[in-house]
Design a protein around this nucleic acid. Sequence first.
DNA 1: AGACTGACTGGGA
DNA 2: GTCCCAGCCAGTC
Length: 108
Amino acid sequence: MKENKFEIIYEVVKLIPRGRATSYGAIAEYLGTKGGARLVGWAMNALMKNHEVPAHRVVNRNGVLSGKNAFATPTTMQELLESEGIEIFDDKIVNFKEVFWSPSKELL
DNA sequence: AGACTGACTGGGA
DNA sequence: GTCCCAGCCAGTC
């Protein structure tokens, strides 16, 4: 299954602090696969079954909830983020810059 | 095996 | 600032 990479992604996503959010590129960079940003998204797709992982904290570089459609409902992701204190407007994080969490920098 | 697609990103126009 | 093109890895047809 080669889910080894996905496993790392799960670990990183689960390590995301509450009220924070990160981008696919940040995780990809932490994994060492720069262009693997899509891979992260693909991993999230497989992560769907792993509801133990807060995938709602993972958004694209623009801070847009691009993967909201992967959740139970397109509004689930927004509801979860708002529930954690993150402000969402038009399916995108308002203060994304403030809630942005870099794994390779803050995690260390 | 070859080609297309996808929760993406970066650089150039 | 926005729009378009090319690159990346993994999975599916």
